[in-house]
């Protein structure tokens, strides 16, 4: 019933010359998304992927279990000295992420261009 979460990774370079690893998600982010969210992140080298950008542009539904997966990703990233940012959330999910405090540990941007320009 829950739509499968798809994810893939792109490597970009910000205008300032930083290497940025983009995790692009598609579908629902829910309890069934562990492999797509944490699995994809954990497959990346923590030594070489220092800036992680989460792309939620093609995500329609995020529930509290999905938010918990994002928090688990943030915990691992913080423990590995990585910086995490996100973009593409709807106004509603920007509000929800702010309410639960995620914005304290992951900067949010409206789109990829705005995120890359700030990195």
């Amino acid at each position: 019933m829950q739509s499968e979460t798809k994810s893939h990774v792109d490597q970009l370079t910000s205008p300032a010359g930083h290497s940025v690893t983009v995790l692009r998600f598609e579908g629902d982010i829910a309890s069934t998304s562990k492999d797509a969210v944490l699995g994809t992140y954990q497959a990346l080298s923590k030594a070489t992927n220092k800036i992680i950008l989460l792309d939620f542009t093609k995500v329609d539904y995020i529930n509290s279990s999905g938010i918990a997966l994002v928090i688990q990703l943030l915990i691992e990233a913080a423990n590995s000295g990585q910086k995490v940012y996100a973009y593409g959330l709807s106004a509603h999910f920007v509000k929800v992420f702010t309410m639960v405090g995620i914005t304290k540990y992951a900067g949010l941007f409206p789109d990829q261009a705005a995120a890359l320009a700030a990195l």
């Binding site: 997966l69 928090i71 688990q72 915990i75 309410m99 639960v100 405090g101 540990y105």
Partner: peptide, 24 residues
């Protein structure tokens, strides 16, 4: 109310936000 700092430091389960979201 979930405490993101406690969650980030492993002192609180990363889950457990549903009721808070409902109320908010």
């Amino acid at each position: 109310k979930p405490d993101i700092d406690r969650k980030m430091h492993g002192e609180e389960d990363a889950r457990g936000m549903g009721m808070f979201l409902i109320q908010a």
